[in-house]
Nucleic acid binder design. Structure first.
Lengths: 223, 223
DNA sequence: ACCTGAACACCGTTCAAGT
DNA sequence: ACCTGAACACCGTTCAAGT
């Protein structure tokens, strides 16, 4: 039997950081929905009510968790890169790598839209890359937003839809085809042989390269 | 005082379709979280338990709602288009228009990832456009997935993040800057004058055109 | 100062019982 | 056959009371 430790004067057992740590650890094992205040308290060996001394509410906690994930994106690899195209690729890969590490955290975005402050910090190297490409002012702004959207959107899509997609494609494709119009059916049937080979890594690279080529093409058409 | 109608033999008051109708109507006014079984029952002038005769559970209901939104995407405008680039643009705009009409439904995707069967049907004209561009086999598959991801990702991003983003940019940008590294700060400060003019329509067009140029560029580099 | 226990106002879902 | 009422097992959050 272990004796439950008690707080001694000025030394609380809990802290914001400890709660966020535990939430992040839990989110690597279980989906967002199951990370309840009660479960969190249990894992921290305390009561749900005790958590509220350190966090305002559950939404606030999830914001802190998201912030933690975003600030953990490692962009050091970009520092000595001289080609802006390769910089953008490295940026996109770094963001994706971190998000795929915490897929359940990525789903918070949808439950609770909140742009973390850390995102500003992460965006800086991306802006540098686009400046190296010769962009500034509104064009820089638009291109940056476009690139961020494509990268974040792709990752969101990958994490949230891909699993369901593959299941549907493999198991239910035939059933789904029954309900389609003849034209839709013909289009999909042609593609059935290619459906199985979903490779998310390759698709991500393909998408990023597509956008980078688009940016390049916009640049050269201006000159 | 109105008298509550009662079901007479073989003519139930409720139906799947009526429940989905009401859910969709509600979702135009209130966010997903507030569309509870109790609220839905109340609006339909019945009890929560009665709903379960027509739908398996809440998740199933939300799937049906999503299906309804997706099948409502109007792609007739694409039928007589001869330029594949313009076809892709029209496809993207049609998908966005419908999703923006039901922003709260779009957030279901994240709560409950499930690719609606109707999505197959919607994808067909997009595939036709890409075939017109000269694509087939794996290249067609990859490009289609890439384009769908960019379009869906952008819309998801727009609906879920943009509101928070604008708020943050306008109100909290200064506060956020305090926490940044000097380098990040300099990068963002340069852009502050341009931050206010967020135009989602223009950004969407910009993004779509960027990807279309990327696809074009990939096509021509193969020949 | 820090934490606990119990309560409040909600959920989704089930099922015996009514008409 | 169709619907109701009550119950079950959960939520997030609050707050008086304990140590």
């Amino acid at each position: 039997m272990s004796i439950k430790p008690r707080a001694v004067r000025g030394r609380p057992l809990l802290s914001q950081a400890k709660i966020v740590d535990k939430a992040l650890a839990l989110l690597q094992k279980i989906p967002l929905k199951e990370v309840t205040m009660r479960r969190l308290a249990q894992e921290l060996d305390t009561t749900p009510a005790a958590l509220y001394a350190y966090i305002k509410n559950q939404q606030d906690l999830f914001n802190a968790v998201t912030e933690r994930v975003i600030s953990g994106i490692d962009l050091r690899d970009l520092d000595h890169e001289t080609d802006w195209r390769e910089m953008l690729r490295k940026w996109a890969r770094a963001v994706r790598e971190r998000q795929l590490q915490f897929p359940h955290v990525t789903t918070i975005v949808q439950v609770n839209p909140h742009t973390p402050v850390a995102w500003f910090e992460i965006t800086e190297p991306q802006l540098r890359a686009l400046q190296m490409a010769g962009l500034s002012g509104y064009a820089l702004m638009d291109t940056s937003r476009c690139f961020s959207r494509v990268v974040l959107g792709s990752i969101l899509n990958e994490i949230m839809l891909e699993a369901a997609m593959i299941r549907l494609e493999r198991e239910d494709a035939d059933a789904a085809l029954e309900h389609l119009s003849p034209r839709g059916r013909a289009a999909i049937e042609n593609l059935l042989p290619y459906l199985g080979d979903q490779d998310n890594d390759a698709l991500f690279e393909f998408t990023i390269n597509c956008v980078i080529r688009g940016i390049e093409s916009a640049l050269s058409s201006e000159h």
